[in-house]
Write a protein that binds this DNA or RNA. Structure first.
Lengths: 149, 149
DNA sequence: GCTAAGTATATGAGAGTTCAACTAAAATGG
DNA sequence: CCATTTTAGTTGAACTCTCATATACTTAGC
């Protein structure tokens, strides 16, 4: 009944798990060490920094930062404590709220970005040939398009 | 100074993050829902099940299950509470200890495996062409060989 | 309009992870 | 040998994540 993985598939799967975990751990450690934040927080700041007025509705932000709403809510609470983000109510829909990046938050992001990009290159881009990078792009796009709601 | 990512690289990077996260979340949800354990626990059980006598030193187990020692220690404590794993001291090195999969643990693993493999296929293997799968295998192996200690 | 259903967000508890510190036992090396 | 350093493993605290639930508002249906 079950279509088990053959040896090749097993190896691919385990390499996939190992590789993606290694990349994610490298990212998280670098950001935690040099910027005092986890990667998920960094993604939230990035998303906000790219929005008009550096401000966005919470649900929109959750989507862009690839976060669940609950996770985002907790995270923004912490970011607010640090003064990096501020929440404001939404006028047109009184259930909603906006999260806005503060100047301090933008500064923290700007300070973190170079080290982060370095790490991204070190742990992924520099490891692959240009051809492999192209292949990876297509593979990830395919997965994303299939799995994303 | 900083070599920022160009637009193509940005897109690749974000697709990579999204895709790997989607796969990991799918795995974790499936296992949590149908087997009551996170994927990290599953990996521990798998590693043990493949060892001689279904038993292994903690450090070896940490390496095989891609876990930090601390994480493993906590996890095995929980697995012990469930009766899925048992710890025994090591004779030849009295600092060390073995973790052994119990029959109940093996049964839990056997019960979880089919649904898990299904999910692996659904969220990754079935999405890709055979060619892409080969490419992914090489990419992941390259990353692993570079980043792994 | 008024009720029912749906949406946007928050919140609390429980569980897992990390990091730094700690214990204990081996290996190293004068 | 004895002192130092390394290794194996555990532990507790702080933090993040998930899941279920709660709240407040909005939209639909009648």
């Amino acid at each position: 009944m079950t279509r088990w993985l053959d040896d090749d598939e097993q190896r691919t799967w385990r390499d996939f798990l190992a590789a993606t975990q290694l990349v994610n751990e490298a990212l998280d450690r670098q950001l935690q060490r040099e910027a005092g934040m986890p990667h998920t927080y960094y993604m939230i700041l990035v998303a906000l920094s790219e929005a008009p007025e550096r401000s966005m509705r919470m649900s929109e932000l959750a989507a862009r930062a690839q976060s669940s709403q609950s996770r985002l809510s907790h995270a923004v609470a912490r970011l607010e404590e640090r003064g990096w983000v501020r929440r404001r109510p939404c006028d047109s829909d009184r259930r909603g709220s906006f999260a806005a990046l503060t100047d301090e938050g933008f500064a923290a992001l700007a300070a973190a970005a170079p080290g982060h990009v370095e790490e991204v290159r070190r742990s992924l881009f520099d490891v692959l040939t240009p051809e492999q990078l192209g292949q990876l792009a297509e593979i990830c796009a395919a997965v994303r398009n299939t799995l994303e709601p």
